[in-house]
Amino acid sequence: MVPPEYYLVLSAAIFCIGLFGILTRRNALYFLMSAELMLNAAVINLVAFSFQWGNLTGQTFALFVIALAAAEVAVGIGIVLVLYRNFGDVDVLNAATMRW
């Protein structure tokens, strides 16, 4: 059996990749993908602990998160489309009109 530390390290690594993507990329589609990575990093944690303690709650929760992620992508794609329509680009730095 793989000890849970390995899963945690994997999850933390995927999360950091997602975070890095969000902080550095300018393309909104990368944003979506990075957010997806961060969500799944959290799901790995849930599944790992569920496996560790022999409790199915975490896995059930993982299924919910997958459904949620699908919905999130649908909304996210819609936002990206609107972004493109309004600013002619999917660069998030262009869409900076809502500020002080």
């Binding site: 902080l23 900076a96 809502m98 500020r99």
Partner: peptide
């Protein structure tokens, strides 16, 4: 303080982090 509301979404993400 209102200067931090730049409108750039990456900045918000950075602040959150």
């Amino acid at each position: 303080i209102r200067r931090i509301q730049s409108g750039v979404v990456s900045n918000y993400a950075l602040l959150l982090t």
